[in-house]
Amino acid sequence: MRAIQLQEFGGPELLQLVELPAPAPGDGEVLIEVSRAGLNFADTHQRTNSYLAKAEVPLVPGVEVAGTRTDTGERVVAICGNGGYAEYATAPAALTFPIPDGIDDGTALALLIQGLTAWHLYKTCARVQPGESVVVHSAAGGVGSLAVQLGRPLGAGRVIASASTEEKRALALELGADVAIDGAAEGLTERLIEANEGRPVDAVFEMAGGAVFDASFDALAHFGRIVAYGIATREQNEIRTGKLMKTSRTVAGFWFTHCLGRPEMVDAALADLYARAARGELRAVVGATYPLADAAQAQIDLAERRTTGKLLLDPRA
């Protein structure tokens, strides 16, 4: 089968198209003929072995796929952990989910990791209360574009989006944000408060780290919450306990991996997301689909924030 493999950690040029034997499913696993593989920002960290979970080479990247179970012929989406950038992948049966009729592969992948992340940012981490203001950074991205749309249904009173370009801010407004602002760190605190009609904000979903995190933290109201679910800048932050007490603010972290093995955190939430999509209430923004051989370019475009929505690889192209 055709696959993308890393023989050593480093730059995107190390993502090489190779021929490998198709993997054999182990106990409790299924074999999937992959129609689409999802790209995630974490893939760019894994390529340099700078992700939270350390990897070993040789490695076929790709944590999620959509395709067909070879044993049943059923259309499924699955979290495979590794091996998704290929024509075939194995995945635990417990992390393989049927794709409902009327849902395409791109939508199914967008609602899996990104959709569940957005859902848990509201419900599990920030625990947004009715009428509260919510800031969604990177609002045109895979998680952000869904978090913007989930704001009102999950109780937010005002959804403030940030994005890096006018085009992306226009998309955020189209998806339901009340206001969309420039997400650059300089002056961000003041822009966030102004966007919230002069008041500090209640909740922030943040995935950049560094100066953006600090500026967002400073825009929080008393008892406000900021949830870190990514470190795209690779710049980590430190918060002193005295500052937390002085401001009565909360800092939370979210890593989707901790939902795995907890069906109560996945099954009902995913069913809710699929139902909203089927009713036309939730639109998965599916961005570019790259041929498998262009995996390196896909990761470059993702890391340099040239993209919108969910990015896919087509192993058949």
Rank of each mutant, 00 (worst) to 15 (best):
M1C: 06
L6M: 00
L6T: 00
Q7D: 15
Q7W: 10
P12I: 13
P12V: 15
L14T: 10
Q16T: 15
E19W: 08
L20H: 05
L20C: 03
P21F: 08
A22G: 09
G28D: 04
V30M: 08
I32Q: 14
S35N: 09
R36N: 07
G38V: 08
N40W: 03
F41W: 02
F41S: 01
D43T: 06
T48M: 02
N49Y: 05
S50P: 02
K54R: 12
G62V: 07
E64Y: 10
V65N: 00
A66K: 03
T68I: 15
D71T: 13
G73E: 13
V76W: 01
V76M: 12
C80D: 15
N82I: 14
Y85W: 15
E87D: 00
A89T: 10
T90N: 11
T90E: 07
A91S: 14
P92H: 14
L95S: 08
F97E: 14
P98R: 05
P100E: 11
D105H: 14
A110R: 01
L112E: 05
I113M: 09
Q114K: 12
Q114G: 09
G115K: 07
T117W: 03
K123S: 07
C125A: 10
A126S: 10
A126F: 06
P130A: 10
P130N: 05
V135R: 00
V136A: 04
S138Q: 15
A139C: 14
V143D: 02
L146E: 07
L146A: 13
L154R: 08
L154M: 09
G155E: 12
A156S: 06
G157Q: 10
I160C: 02
A161V: 07
T165D: 05
E166G: 03
E167A: 14
K168G: 02
A170V: 03
D178E: 11
D178L: 08
V179R: 00
A180L: 09
I181W: 07
G183M: 04
A184G: 15
L188G: 04
L192H: 02
I193L: 04
E194K: 01
E194N: 04
A195G: 03
A203V: 13
A203C: 11
F213M: 05
S216D: 00
L220G: 11
A221T: 07
A221D: 08
H222M: 12
H222W: 10
H222E: 14
F223V: 07
G224Y: 04
R225S: 15
A228K: 00
I231N: 00
I231M: 02
Q236Y: 03
N237H: 11
E238P: 01
R240G: 05
M245P: 02
K246C: 10
A252L: 13
W255Q: 11
L260R: 05
E264Y: 06
E264W: 11
V266P: 07
D267I: 11
D272K: 13
A275Q: 14
A275H: 12
R276T: 07
A277D: 12
G280N: 12
E281D: 11
E281W: 03
R283N: 15
A284D: 15
A284F: 10
Y290K: 10
P291A: 12
A293Y: 08
A298I: 14
Q299G: 13
D301T: 09
E304V: 09
R306P: 06
R306L: 11
R306G: 06
G309I: 09
L311M: 12
R316I: 08
